[in-house]
Simulated scan of single mutants.
Amino acid sequence: MSKVPRHEFYETDEKLTLSIFDKGADPAQVVVKFEPRSLSYTNGDTALTLQPLKGQIDTTKSDYSVGKVKVEVRLVKVAQGRWGALEGDQPDLLTPSQAGYTTSEAVTSQRKKQKNWDGITTKILGSEKGKTSEEDPNVGGDSTVNEFFQKLFSDADDDTRRAMMKSYQESGGTTLSTNWEEVSKGRVEVKPPEGSEWKKWSA
C-alpha cells in the first residue's frame, strides 16, 4: 500500500507552489505528471494524487525540483485568482484566452464599455442646445461659459438646481450657489465684485 506524504502549499494569483515532504527522494525515481486538472507524484511506495485540482493549470509551464527534504512543485494557473484549496469540483473559470482575447484586450474591452456611458451623456447634453439671443434676450456672453453652466445645471440634482436658480436670480447674477440648505433660509444678498457698486436699472 502506498504512503501519502505530508504536503502543504502557498499561492499567488498566478502560481501555486506545493511542497511535498519526501526526505531523501532520489531525483531519478521521482515522477510528477501534470494534467490540466490533476497532479500525480510517485517515488517508490510514496504517492500523492490531487484530482480534480481547484483550477486549471498550464502543463507546459508547470515544473518541479527535488531537494534533500522536500520536492517543490510549481503549478502555473491558467486563470488568475486564488484557489484557497488544492482540490475542488467547481467548473473551470472562463479565461480571457478562452473567450477569444488576451488579458490586455479584456481590460481594454471593459474600459470601452465604461466609456460608452460618457458618450451617451455627452450625446444627451449635446442635444440640449441652448437658446439663441433672439429666442432669449437674457442669453449672451462667452459661449464657453454658457455651455459650462448648462452642463453644470443638467448634471445637478433638484436641490442643487433650485439653489442655483434662487441664488442667481435674487442676487442679480452676482452669486451662484449650489447649497440649497443655505440658500433656502432666506433671500440671497447682492454681492457685486470688490470695487464695484450694484445699481438696479429701471425700465
Rank of each mutant, 00 (worst) to 15 (best):
residue 157 D to F: 09
residue 156 A to H: 06
residue 72 E to Y: 01
residue 161 R to D: 04
residue 97 S to T: 10
residue 132 T to P: 02
residue 95 T to Q: 03
residue 166 K to E: 03
residue 121 T to E: 13
residue 50 L to S: 00
residue 8 E to A: 06
residue 33 K to P: 00
residue 90 Q to G: 03
residue 1 M to D: 06
residue 106 A to I: 00
residue 131 K to H: 09
residue 96 P to Q: 07
residue 37 R to F: 07
residue 167 S to Q: 04
residue 15 K to P: 00
residue 99 A to K: 13
residue 29 Q to F: 13
residue 139 V to F: 10
residue 200 K to Y: 10
residue 198 W to V: 00
residue 109 S to Q: 12
residue 66 V to M: 04
residue 105 E to N: 04
residue 161 R to I: 07
residue 203 A to K: 15
residue 119 G to R: 11
residue 130 G to D: 14
residue 51 Q to G: 00
residue 148 F to I: 10
residue 52 P to N: 02
residue 40 S to Q: 07
residue 115 K to F: 14
residue 40 S to M: 06
residue 113 K to L: 15
residue 196 S to E: 11
residue 122 T to I: 09
residue 140 G to H: 11
residue 182 E to M: 08
residue 28 A to E: 15
residue 150 Q to V: 03
residue 150 Q to S: 08
residue 172 G to H: 08
residue 59 T to G: 01
residue 44 G to M: 11
residue 44 G to K: 07
residue 180 W to V: 05
residue 115 K to N: 13
residue 19 S to M: 10
residue 182 E to P: 00
residue 68 K to S: 03
residue 127 S to V: 07
residue 92 D to A: 12
residue 48 L to H: 01
residue 70 K to W: 02
residue 106 A to N: 04
residue 62 S to Q: 11
residue 73 V to F: 11
residue 148 F to A: 09
residue 114 Q to L: 15
residue 141 G to Y: 09
residue 192 P to E: 03
residue 112 K to H: 06
residue 69 V to G: 00
residue 114 Q to W: 15
residue 121 T to M: 14
residue 44 G to P: 07
residue 29 Q to D: 15
residue 200 K to M: 10
residue 138 N to G: 06
residue 193 P to K: 14
residue 5 P to S: 01
